[in-house]
Design a protein around this nucleic acid. Structure first.
Lengths: 334, 334
DNA sequence: GAGCGGGATTTTAGCGTTAAAGTAAAGAGT
DNA sequence: ACTCTTTACTTTAACGCTAAAATCCCGCTC
């Protein structure tokens, strides 16, 4: 390993002068600078980031900590990365599997030291656990769980999105809409909020809310969505609409409906949530609540930058607006 | 920040004893150990990982460097993570956008220092550029590009997979199969290899290879796949099969066919490559070449572990076997 | 020609940890 | 009683870098 000291010896200057050249901190005379640069090239020197970090107390790196790397989080991460890089920092992703233990470990003193700031997509921790986190490190929380006031937080208008999607299907003739995965669950505020929206759309339209149409799913996967809807079909419960709690789950519903010979949107209307890249391509086009990933990314990164720049005002709690993207899976579509 | 020195003072021992308790390196008498642990708890001490790294020369972290976070790479990352964690290390993801500059930067001396090992999915660098990388850091390269012998490398049986998929469609009656995205391109060995497989399937069956059926696409996205296939349809070129270079592109083809009123598999058979999670749910089920993400992950991580454990034998170049998963989008399916 | 201002460069002093060598005291062997 | 081990803990010396203070050198003033 080539050290600054090696470069300094080669160039006949002190280590500090090399540091000043490399970091462009204090001005260095041109002839000296040239000699140092030549030595850097000749030896192939590159700074030791760990040593710099220890000494300077800054890593120029931001972590985005997610439950899993695929689907929704993968797409959001790709929006966040350029925003972080635009400020000259690196973005790294870490995975928690959504477990409270992993999320807590990610917020531990030891791990937070590795980053200048952290974006955490909360899936497992509750308000009390988060309240135990003591740190001044810039942190922005994402996701639908309840969090302490002192953290910056960005979440989606879940209830409104679910209401929009459900109301849209009611407007176009559906009367028995399955809420696929819309369970009332303290562990998943997201599903609870979306269920409330599903209910409100019914009430707003003067329709009964029938608990049999709330169908729980074991995990938020397409496979679970498909299986759950197949069970509904097999049970004989009549339905003419499906609001799936996420697009991934909706894709499972698409498969279940196709296998069962039910036509979309003629027999059953279908809407999801997240508006993933794939959603516009799955025939006949999946109507979905668009959460504006890009806007969410900008908001979250903006709050983080503000904190990293030294802002100490009160934390913000942003509810990102949503809109309904109507496609062929509902009758309002093209 | 609480330092080891603070714990040492609190417990009335030397810093080194604290270190020995925390790391369980040298044995410490039980009463002393208990006092140190009590002080650790009382002060909320956690080790400074940066300092440990600088001193010990080890980060217990592995990086997986990918072109982008979504789709294929997101799914593979989720397979890799548990394998790295099983050995007590952390996995972090970094993104290169597939650009040679970013990939080269990720392999720079400075950045490699941050990790005990690196998995790099090569998308932009060519053999010569990779050959300029001088390091003894454990590295495993993934992907379809040509790489120097001295690197461990895992790639897929691209040609064989493309041949399998194409031959399967020929066997079930297709005679004019579009190779969607299967261009001959030095920048993308992946597409070239898959094109060769597409060609070989034709020759094996005694069919002509018609260059008009090789359709280039601008990017490997569903949107590009859809647009390109719509152009083919508009051009009037007759076809009865589509082999898409990836499942993401195949999804675009699904959309184009549906919009154009072409039935799958009756009018047109369709097969993709990668067997993503979504592929089994998109009606009528996407026939796809399965690259066995899990097996690829195990192989790559195995090679990395071997290197991190000190193995200095010759590098291995693994070609991961593929198999065809037949679903409803081709006529052999259920 | 003594004194001063200021740019260029070096010296000093760690950042928080750990490998290795050192010391002190208790126990074992002859 | 004196070595010889063994156990328990401490001291020393970095790892490679940089903020801040100190020094050096030069031209310039009066």
């Amino acid at each position: 390993m080539v050290r600054m000291a090696d470069v300094a010896r080669e160039a006949g200057v002190s280590v500090m002068t090399v540091s000043n050249v490399v970091n462009e901190r204090l001005p260095v005379n041109e002839p000296t600078r040239a000699r140092v640069m030549a030595a850097v090239e000749a030896l192939g020197y590159e700074v030791n980031l760990t040593a710099r970090h220890l000494r300077a107390g800054r890593t120029d790196t931001v972590a985005f900590i997610v439950p899993s790397f695929h689907d929704y989080f993968g797409e959001v991460s790709d929006k966040i990365a350029p925003l972080i890089e635009a400020e000259g920092r690196h973005l790294v992703l870490e995975r928690t599997s959504g477990s409270p233990e992993h999320e807590m470990a990610a917020l531990s003193v030891a791990r937070l030291q590795l980053y200048d700031g952290v974006l955490l997509s909360v899936a497992g921790l509750d308000r009390d656990q988060l309240d135990r986190v003591r740190t001044t490190k810039p942190i922005v929380l994402l996701g639908e769980r309840d969090v302490p006031d002192r953290f910056n937080h960005v979440r989606l208008a879940n209830e409104e999105g679910a209401r929009l999607a459900t109301a849209h299907m009611i407007e176009h003739g559906s009367r028995r809409i399955v809420g696929l995965g819309c369970t009332f669950d303290t562990a998943h505020m997201m599903t609870s909020d979306r269920r409330i929206g599903w209910e409100r759309a019914h009430r707003d339209a003067g329709l009964d809310v029938d608990a049999r149409y709330v169908v729980p799913i074991s995990t938020f996967t397409s496979a679970a969505g498909r299986d759950a809807l197949l069970d509904v079909i097999a049970s004989g419960l009549p339905f003419d609409g499906v609001f799936a709690v996420t697009d991934v789950v909706a894709l499972g519903a698409v498969a279940a409906l196709a296998e069962s010979g039910l036509r979309v949107p003629t027999d059953v209307q279908l809407a999801g949530f997240d508006n993933l890249d794939m959603s516009s391509f799955v025939p006949p086009g999946l109507t979905s609540v668009d959460a504006n990933h890009e806007g969410v990314a900008e908001t979250a990164v903006g709050l983080l930058h503000r904190q990293m720049a030294g802002w100490t005002g009160p934390a913000e709690h942003v509810v990102a607006p949503v809109r309904l993207v109507v496609r062929g899976s509902t009758r309002g579509g093209a």
